[in-house]
Design a protein around this nucleic acid. Structure first.
Lengths: 209, 209
DNA sequence: GCGCTAAAATGAACACCGTTCAGTGAATTA
DNA sequence: TAATTCACTGAACGGTGTTCATTTTAGCGC
């Protein structure tokens, strides 16, 4: 390899590094503004303002607003997935683990309202219709969810005549709690946690074998 | 009363009538566009375009976009309330009535996605913080809801240790189903109805005395 | 019928938004 | 040093909600 080739390679690498840096800077600023202003208040022009670039520059790193929003959603979903994994490893008892998972879902939703809204309320299409390899796998998270439920069924802790419908019903109950807390002014986190306890108790008793 | 006075009164009435007419025309056009374009696509300029007036005219009849949107939400909530009343009178048996009410909630949500989204997902603040007399009463709808539940409790059909938490949990479950069906591309109405059946069965069994 | 007056409606403007693209200027290459 | 590539800009386009001076319209007394 000649000296010139090495020089060119180094230069190219440096450029790519800078490009990657700015991409990350945009993403970081976007995350801050998204948390600060919420889903509706989030705008590309503010992100550009924040990092001191013109609005057009963002389009050199992200295809459009949705693309940037999708990147944020993926980050948020990674956190969500990690939480699921952590919680599902918290206990050896199948029933305890399942309850911990459900409670973890609600707590995550209450503690990360902006991201929960983005992922599960405003733009679930980012995940459902996303074939990209780098996309966090909706299915993987759901795999944890259903494996925990399967374990409880196998251990004879709960009955699930129709696993899909039952799983949907449980998910809906938890999602409903978080969604109401997210949008209704008087559905406080405290009230949501109370509803979650009642729901979990109801579900467990309702699915008793 | 002189002839002139009568003339003036008639004229004034005619004017008020015209004002009322245009107000209703705006509301009607707004409803159509809201249904056609959904919550996000709805714009005042389109409403003005539809009825052949300039955008500013709408502000002579509604304070702003929220005010018009609130009027739509109130209409939608009236439909919702009527449905609750109708359904709650459908059966004499407390348990049947309660189940019919729950199922009616889900069906209404699935059949009126735009309005359900407006009322329960995007702008519940229209109701929670609305002190106006003409506002549909959130509390009245909830009164039907909880009276039906109370009847079932008194009839010994279900147990409700903590009525508020239990009621919140049930509402959350139903809302979760409708909310998921509303926003998730692959959560079809059919799937939602399946989840609703599973949820209702789970709840009934979970609350068995 | 004719001015006068008050109400109604307009349309241009403002400040935003996402998005595009010809043009600029700096860094790299030859 | 000259040429070229590249990141970046900033103005523009069409859209949004909202305001307000201005114009048009309609009813009134005469």
């Amino acid at each position: 390899m000649t000296r010139q080739q090495r020089l060119r390679e180094g230069s190219q690498k440096r450029r790519e590094q800078q490009k990657e840096d700015l991409s990350q800077l945009i993403l970081k600023a976007a995350g801050e503004i998204f948390l600060r202003r919420g889903y509706e208040g989030f705008s590309l022009r503010q992100v550009a303002e924040e990092i001191g670039y013109s609005p057009g520059t963002i389009y050199l790193y992200f295809a459009n607003k949705d693309d940037l929003l999708r990147a944020l959603a993926h980050q948020g979903f990674d956190d969500f997935s990690r939480m699921l994994e952590t919680v599902s490893a918290s206990s050896a008892d199948p029933l305890d683990r399942m309850i911990a998972l459900w409670r973890g879902y609600v707590v995550f939703g209450l503690q990360n309202p902006a991201f929960y809204r983005l992922i599960f309320m405003e733009r679930p299409d980012f995940f459902v219709n996303d074939q990209a390899e780098n996309a966090p796998k909706w299915e993987e998270a759901f795999a944890i969810w259903s494996s925990v439920m399967n374990d409880a069924v196998r251990a004879g802790k709960i009955r699930a005549d129709d696993p899909v419908k039952t799983s949907d019903a449980i998910w809906s109950a938890l999602h409903g709690i978080v969604a109401l807390a997210n949008r209704m002014p008087d559905f406080t986190a405290e009230r949501a946690l109370g509803a979650a306890d009642a729901a979990i108790e109801m579900i467990i008793k309702g699915l008793r074998p």
